[in-house]
Design a protein around this nucleic acid. Structure first.
Lengths: 245, 245
DNA sequence: CGACGCGTTGAGTTAACTCAATGCTCGTGG
DNA sequence: CCACGAGCATTGAGTTAACTCAACGCGTCG
């Protein structure tokens, strides 16, 4: 059973996932005292080094997680959507270890960590859900790690789009067309590529009709067939040590 | 406060970390029913797809986490040492999403997940510790992600050795000399490089006297000055999109 | 309008890859 | 004991995917 990529191939699965997210949000809203906050593109949800007394849940919109090293390197290490939890990285050391920045207008729920634990003590299913969410983050990060080292530039971009479409599909949004909320430079940073490589990869994918551009600014991507995109990712073999053993 | 890399620079910090691990293990051993299992190099701790009813804690030895995609790509996505928890990835879906394989003789503690939760309900500090461990995994995975995309081949190898030395230092083991328990191919797979690139990088580091070989098989690495290695990693600038914004 | 931010495309360079040869260790069996 | 082979590591030569640098196009906004 080697099926790690969140390939939510069929509609039924996407719908189940969508239901799961809805249920999770309802459970949280019902059981945990929370503070709603509307954020706009560019707003910081939390900053690296801030004391971590809250966790966040994205109710609408999307945001990026930026890791910054002491030597100045900074990198997008995650993209989050409706139903995703933010801030787990801060629990261990008491301070957040990265920045969380909104990419779009949306609503974030802030939960005090102690209040959340208290609610979990009252209602065990909440704790199970919390653990599942943390587990999900771990699994997802490992999948990104793998994509970065095993895929070529074109495949990485294709995978990025596929993941984006998948994330939207799981949230009941249209999947045939997606609006990129990031510049080529940001996408490149996330994928470990230069902005020129991202641009070229997108052009090549478009030339193969795996994607299409829907607007002049080239931020709206049409995806006629997500399956074709997925198989493209599979076909492209890795340039470096793809397999072990 | 942009200091993400677990740069356990000074001895005091390493000793504190060592204490934390010891305390954590003692807490677990005291409060949670567990099954001890001795593993040898190559033994599988769990396999991708197995139902996840247990978590594991590495008491001694080291092991690797291997992610496998449906299309056959397989990759080492984590290295674990004494005190590290294994299996969090399985909580969300009820099945493990990767393989865990011992690299060395060691002892693994198996904890039934339900028993662990029961113990946490009895003793809240245990729950805090569990969450901290999950948080730690998340933070560490993000650091690897960043290293992969922002560092050159030589810097990646240097960072790998630095991390290894750091992990050993935090566990009270000698840090000036480390034994690699992986082949060049495995290291390359972990770092997103070919085995030849790893070999060349090691040779270059040795030529610069940042490391030395202590045996004929070139598996024993001497590190005269971990600080020098760390600054080498910082100096090497990224070939691709190092910064954003 | 002119400046600016973002995206694309071309030309040349380079870091890392592939392929191939060779050497070192170690275990095994004559 | 030594010969042999398997497995791992190193090194060289040539190739290539991705990078850098640079030019240019397009849309937006003051």
């Amino acid at each position: 059973m080697h099926a790690n990529q969140p390939l939510t191939a069929d509609l039924a699965e996407a719908r189940a996932e969508s239901q799961r997210i809805t249920d999770m949000l309802a459970l949280v809203a019902e059981r945990v005292p929370l503070q709603r906050r509307v954020v706009h593109a560019g707003d910081t949800i939390y900053r690296c080094g801030d004391p971590c007394s809250q966790l966040f849940v994205l109710n609408t919109g999307c945001c990026k997680i930026v890791n910054s090293a002491s030597d100045g390197r900074a990198q997008v290490v995650g993209l989050l959507f409706r139903g995703d939890w933010i801030g787990f990285d801060g629990i261990a050391g008491g301070r957040y270890r990265c920045d969380a920045v909104a990419l779009d207008t949306g609503e974030v729920w802030a939960l005090r960590y102690d209040a959340l634990l208290a609610a979990c003590a009252q209602h065990p299913p909440l704790l199970a859900m919390l653990h599942a969410e943390m587990s999900r983050v771990i699994g997802r990060d490992r999948d990104s790690l793998m994509a970065l080292t095993t895929l070529s530039a074109d495949a990485r971009v294709a995978e990025f789009l596929r993941l984006m479409a998948d994330a939207l599909a799981c949230r009941g949004l249209r999947t045939d067309q997606i609006t990129l909320r990031m510049t080529r430079a940001e996408i490149g940073n996330y994928l470990g590529l230069t902005l020129e490589s991202v641009s070229r990869a997108l052009s090549r994918l478009a030339r193969q009709h795996l994607i299409g551009f829907a607007d002049g600014a080239r931020r709206e991507i049409r995806i006629p067939d997500v399956g074709a995109l997925a198989s493209f990712v599979g076909l492209e073999t890795a340039p470096a040590g793809a397999t072990v053993q």
